[in-house]
């Protein structure tokens, strides 16, 4: 992945607007957060291959900590702390945030085909 380029990624988000797409949304502090170092409870959630159609999209914030919002007909998809992006060979848009140790903290991914 590489650092998010604001205008470029905005355009990619727009390219999926008003289409049926599959999303993967995830956030985590790791399965061992409470086991190592008393960092409190493990928190995390993911949705994989939810089929949605969004009618507006935007990316805000600054380098290292962008926020993405996708407006649905009846709701929202939101992710913050996004720093990196990649468009895969199968044309999936991957957005992610990482901590200093390179561990994934948040992900928002969009694809016209279901993720594997």
């Amino acid at each position: 992945m590489k650092p998010i380029e604001l205008e470029k990624v905005k355009d990619i988000l727009k390219s999926y607007q008003n289409k049926d797409v599959y999303v993967h949304v995830e956030t985590t502090n790791g399965a061992y957060a409470s086991h190592f170092g008393n960092k409190g409870v493990n928190v995390g959630a993911y949705i994989r291959n939810a089929k949605v159609k969004y009618i507006e999209s935007d990316l805000k914030g600054e380098s290292g900590a962008f926020r993405a919002g996708l407006k649905l007909e009846a709701g929202w998809i939101y992710a913050e702390g996004l720093s990196d992006y990649e468009v895969t060979e199968s044309n999936q848009l991957l957005l992610a945030g990482h901590d200093q140790a390179g561990r994934l903290t948040v992900a928002l991914q969009i694809s016209e085909q279901p993720f594997k």
Partner: peptide, 17 residues
């Protein structure tokens, strides 16, 4: 679904498997 992607990251959520 692991969180570690390598240092520096060598993987992403879709390539990790």
């Amino acid at each position: 679904m692991g969180r570690n992607m390598g240092i520096p990251p060598i993987a992403n959520r879709e390539s990790l498997a």
